[in-house]
Simulated scan of single mutants.
Amino acid sequence: MTAQRQETSARRRGAAFIMLLCGLVAASVAQGATTERLVTDRFTGLAIGGFDPVAYFTDAGPLAGREDFEAAQAGAVWRFRNEGNRAVFLAHPEVYSPQFGGYDPVDVGRGVALAGNPKFWLIAGKRLFLFGRAESRDAFAADPARFAREARQRWPGLRETLAQ
């Protein structure tokens, strides 16, 4: 192999390594914030993936909010379906925000901060809970009082380990 071909081959390997490293960094960042007290998207600052938190109560499910109806609350950008939902949320964010900052309450009860998925949800005790997986939601639904109690006990200590 000539010196020129060896040099070209080394550059290609170096470029491939850099591309692989960039891909790994991008993949870890794209998963969303897991060291924040409120789960948000690192790029957009959106809470709960841009879903309208009030819609879980009024429409019995996750509905995407609109850019036209946004509000900043608790260091995040929240989106809503309409002005009414935005006004209700701003009047009572403690009611409509997901409990435990949007982290899975089953995992919080175990002392682990795993971001909830807005598509795995449950309303229990007039509060919204998001779960990382369907199995957690199903376990919580079987005994919500126990899991909520365990999560409430662990949340203050766990919350302090998360960045502000």
Rank of each mutant, 00 (worst) to 15 (best):
G23P: 05
S28H: 15
D68H: 15
G102A: 08
R12N: 15
V29K: 11
L158N: 00
P118L: 03
K126M: 12
I48P: 00
G109H: 01
A145K: 01
A141W: 07
G50I: 08
N117E: 14
A145V: 05
V95F: 15
Q99D: 07
R79W: 09
R81I: 13
E94R: 11
F100H: 08
F51V: 05
F131P: 00
F69M: 04
L21R: 09
L122N: 02
E67Q: 09
Q73C: 15
Q99M: 10
T40W: 05
K126E: 12
R81C: 13
A142T: 08
Y56K: 01
R110A: 03
G111C: 04
T58K: 04
A15H: 11
E83Q: 07
R149D: 02
L63F: 07
R152Y: 06
G50R: 07
A72K: 15
I48F: 02
Q99Y: 08
E36P: 03
G50P: 03
A27G: 08
F17A: 15
L21Q: 11
A72P: 12
V88Y: 15
V25K: 10
P156F: 04
R110Y: 03
G111L: 02
T40S: 07
A134D: 12
A30Y: 13
S97R: 08
F69I: 05
R127G: 09
R110D: 01
T35H: 15
A76W: 07
F100Q: 04
L122D: 03
G65L: 08
G61Q: 08
D68C: 15
L21P: 05
E67G: 09
D52V: 01
A115T: 00
I123T: 05
N85W: 09
G116N: 01
R152I: 04
F51H: 04
R42K: 15
V95K: 12
D143F: 10
F131M: 00
S136E: 01
P62V: 06
V106I: 14
L38G: 08
F57E: 06
L63V: 07
G14R: 13
A141P: 04
A124S: 09
R159T: 07
A30P: 11
Y56T: 02
I18T: 14
G132C: 11
A87T: 13
R42E: 15
A55H: 09
G84S: 14
D138K: 07
P144S: 10
I48E: 01
A148F: 08
E83V: 10
G14H: 13
W121A: 02
G61E: 07
D107H: 10
